[in-house]
Write a protein that binds this DNA or RNA. Sequence first.
DNA 1: AAATTATGCAACCGCGCGTGC
DNA 2: GGCACGCGCGGTTGCATAATT
Length: 303
Amino acid sequence: MMRTPSSDESGLKKGPWSPEEDKILVDYIQKHGHGSWRALPKLAGLNRCGKSCRLRWTNYLRPDIKRGKFSDEEEQLIINLHAVLGNKWAAIASHLPGRTDNEIKNLWNTHLRKKLLQMGLDPVTHRPRTDHLNLLTNLQQILEAAKIVSSFTNPCEINNALRLHSDVTQLAKFQLLQNMFATPSPSSLTDGFLHDVLGFNQCNNLQNLHDGNSVSQILPNFQNFEAIQQPSPSNSLPNLVSASPERSPVKAENVNANSKECSNPSSTTFELTWGDFMEEDATDNYWKGFIDQHSNQTWSTVQ
DNA sequence: AAATTATGCAACCGCGCGTGC
DNA sequence: GGCACGCGCGGTTGCATAATT
C-alpha cells in the first residue's frame, strides 16, 4: 500500500512511514509536544518535511485515534452531518471522537457516496436524483428486462413480458418525473427532455406548471402510480426507484389500467408486489427468475 | 491458476486563511 | 497595505489487496 519510498529534490523522504520513523515521531511528541511542525523534523531527527510529520501524527499516530470499522450509528451521523455541512470533513470529524477527517473522507468516497446513489439520492444535495445519469441507469435496467423478453419463444410469454416491461417503463418515468417535481425549477425538465427521453407529447408549459402540482395532477394517467407512492424507512433501494415506495401488494392490472402509452392496455392476471420490484437488484438473474416464475405459474393462463 | 479489474486507504499536493512583521 | 510564513483543509494519487474473469 501507499507510495514507493522516495525523496524529493530537497532530499526529504516521502512515501510510507517505517515503524522506526513512527517511533521517533511518537517519542519526540510525547516528550516535547509537536510545537512548530516545520521545525519538528530537524529537532526529532527525521528526514521528513513538517507537513508529512503532522499528517502522520494527526491521521495515524495520535493516541486518541479510534481505528476499525465505522458503526452504523457513526455512518448515519456522517450522512446527516454531510447533508448540513457538505464536504467539510474536518467539521464532520469534530463530531466523531477519535475519527479523522481523512478517514471520514475516505469512508464517504468509498462507501457512503455509493450508498446514497443506490438509494437514488444525490450525494451532494441529498435530494432525490433527477439527472440523466440516474435515468439512464433506470433505463438500463429496463433494457436488461427487454433483453430477457427477447429471448422468449412462446408468443404468450412475449406478450405478457412486454406488458410487464411497459409497466416497469411507466414506473421509471413516473418516478423520474416525481423527483423532478420535487425540485424547484429543475433544469433538466425541458420539453425536449420530456419528448425525446420520456416520449411525452404536448408537454408545453409543463416546466411552468410543475411547481406546486403533483405529477398526476398534470398527467392523470399516472394517478395509480402516485397512489402507491409512500415514504419508506428502507435505506437500501435499487437505482430503479428514487422516490421510496413502501412494500405494499398491488396488482399489476392496477398499474396498467391508466397507462395510455402502454401498447396493450389489457390487464394481466398475475400478482406482483412493489417489493418485488423495489427491494431486489434488477439483474439478469432477478428478472429471469421473476419472469420465469410468473410465466410458469399464472401467465400461461392468459391467452 | 493466472490475469485483469475493482476497491480501500495512507499519503501527497495545492490552495486559502490567519498571523506577524 | 503588502509580504512571508505556517498551518489546516479538501481533492487526488497510487499502491496493496480483494474480487472477478
